[in-house]
């Protein structure tokens, strides 16, 4: 099973996990990314993406995971548009017969989504200020770490 969705709508984590559990592999790992609320006065994150590229690029990342680990299923959901603190941004779920494969591939996928999927985040603050989030060198290093 391979499911990739790039959407504005929220998603149902329980339903996503249930679909992966139903594959009969014995192990499901997942990561859900949430808009952090504690950062001084942040009222929303605005996510922009490159519509003509995003689906194909996420598919390349998922195919890389499928080539590296024995997986029965992979689900990746990434939202775009305006998201408020507490909102889900991204979901990665993997199913495998082996827990290491499920856990490692899940970490691989979220690391690569951060550094290799064409999304950009803009922060909106309560006083009207806005700021584009800068890419972090440590995120790039984490993704590169999977190359070795």
């Amino acid at each position: 099973m391979k499911r990739i969705a790039i959407q504005t709508a929220d998603f149902d984590v329980a339903a996503e996990l249930a679909a992966l559990e139903a594959l009969g592999g014995g192990g499901v790992a997942s990561f859900t990314g949430i808009v952090r609320g504690e950062e001084g006065g942040l009222i929303a994150l605005e996510l922009e993406h490159y519509p003509a590229m995003t689906q194909a690029q996420v598919d390349r990342i998922v195919e890389e995971a499928l080539a590296r680990w024995p997986l029965l299923g992979v689900s990746v959901i990434h939202r775009f548009g305006r998201l408020e603190p507490g909102a889900r941004i991204v979901f990665v779920g993997t199913a495998s017969r082996h827990r290491a494969a499920a856990l490692e591939s899940c970490a691989f996928l979220i690391d690569w989504m951060k550094s290799d999927a064409p999304f950009w985040k803009k922060e909106h603050f309560g006083d009207g200020a806005t700021q584009w989030v800068e890419a972090r060198a440590e995120d790039e290093a984490k993704a590169q770490g999977w190359r070795s």
């Binding site: 991204v90 951060k114 550094s115 064409p118 950009w120």
Partner: peptide, 12 residues
Amino acid sequence: REVALFPPVTGG
């Protein structure tokens, strides 16, 4: 046919 220019990505 298409060249895109942008800052480093910040998804995930």
